[in-house]
């Protein structure tokens, strides 16, 4: 019989541990820990592929545990279980790239099963990439500097300066400063509406989209997901007025958003984010296998924007119109 993948559950409530172990034990070898310190010990001892932790525990917060876990075992896929009054504290972890999925209590058991399945697959992929990278480095150490580090923070330095940045959903006055600043290095366009955004992505090789998430009638996360489904290499940055924890969680879970920024943002910080985002986008383009969001979409197609969704159809129409115009 094939050896089972090992996973780790962390919660200060033993009954949760017991219950989730029961759910997962057919498919995984389940370890459990009642606090962060025990969890870190287990993580050092066993080849854990997925770790899921409760956020609110005495001694150590879940997001702190996952931050440590990332250092000890970078390829382990990290999942955070959050409760009703945790929204504030998790915001800190949204942009830190520590967490693959947020799961709200009370959870849906099927969802947990899916996340673990996906997590294990991604973990294996990551391990494969790392091995491949090591082999390549051994063969030609200086030639490629692909350094796949875990999940959301894969940095691949590619000497390609120019990227294409698209701002969506801002009045032009709101972003002129940023646009002017970025124009030195990138091609920058700013459009107000989603329709125009679709036209732009069909027309030019957009690498980074900076977008608001609150549009009048359309769900911003869904809009960005539509684009990412069609153009997986596009990296998304959300720049918005309000810190909305549930939106932030959705944009991590559904979009793998690169950064969720709340206005006002310092110019320098913003430029850094865009630099990192374009680097990442070109990495995705050159080596799509490093795009874990794409992998996870491929592994669980239900997370892709539905083929017949209204937004998807709109995007298709924009693409078709462009083709017609060209021929």
């Amino acid at each position: 019989m094939k050896e089972l993948s090992q996973v780790l559950l962390v919660d200060d409530e033993p009954m949760i541990l017991e219950s989730l172990s029961n759910l997962l034990e057919f498919d995984y070898k389940v370890h459990s820990a009642t606090d962060g310190y025990i969890a870190l010990e287990l993580l050092k001892k066993h080849p854990i592929k997925v770790i899921m932790s409760d956020q609110r525990m005495p001694k150590m917060f879940g997001h702190e545990l996952l931050r440590e876990a990332k250092k000890i075992s970078p390829n382990t896929i990290r999942v955070l279980l959050t409760g009703y009054s945790d929204l504030e504290s998790i915001m800190q972890s949204v942009n830190a790239g520590e967490i693959f999925r947020y799961i709200n209590k009370p959870w849906n058991p099927d969802n947990i099963m899916n996340v673990f399945k996906l997590g294990v697959q991604l973990h294996d992929k990551l391990v494969g990439l790392t091995a491949q990278h090591k082999a390549m480095q051994a063969a030609a150490p200086a030639a490629v500097s692909v350094a796949p580090s875990p999940q959301r923070n894969i940095h691949i330095e590619v000497e390609e300066k120019n990227g294409n940045v698209l701002f969506v959903g801002y009045k032009s006055a709101e972003v002129t400063e940023f646009v002017r600043q970025l124009e030195r290095r990138y091609e920058v366009t700013s459009v107000a509406s989603i329709d125009e955004a679709f036209k732009e992505v069909a027309k030019r090789p957009v690498s980074v989209i900076v977008s608001d998430v609150r549009f009048d009638e359309i769900d911003g996360v869904e809009f960005l997901n539509t684009i990412k489904t069609e153009y997986p290499h596009v990296v998304t940055v959300i720049l918005t007025e309000v810190m909305d924890a549930s939106l932030a969680i959705r944009s991590i879970n559904e979009l793998n958003v690169f950064k969720y920024l709340v206005k006002p943002v310092q110019k320098q910080e913003f430029e850094q984010v865009i630099n990192d985002a374009t680097t990442k986008s070109s990495a995705y383009k050159n080596a799509p296998q490093t795009n874990l969001h794409l992998s996870s979409q491929q592994l669980s197609p239900s997370s892709r924007a539905a083929e017949d969704s209204a937004l998807r159809l709109k995007l298709r129409a924009a693409q078709a119109a462009l083709l017609k115009g060209k021929s």
Binding site: I16, S19, N22, R56, G83, K105, W107, I112
Partner: peptide
């Protein structure tokens, strides 16, 4: 409400999960 919602969600979480596991079993 905040205190209670948080507290209730924990047992609710595992009870719900247990029901699903029991069904499976």
């Amino acid at each position: 409400v905040a205190g209670l919602a948080h507290e209730v969600n924990t047992p609710l979480g595992f009870v719900k999960n247990n029901i699903q596991v029991t069904e499976r079993n």
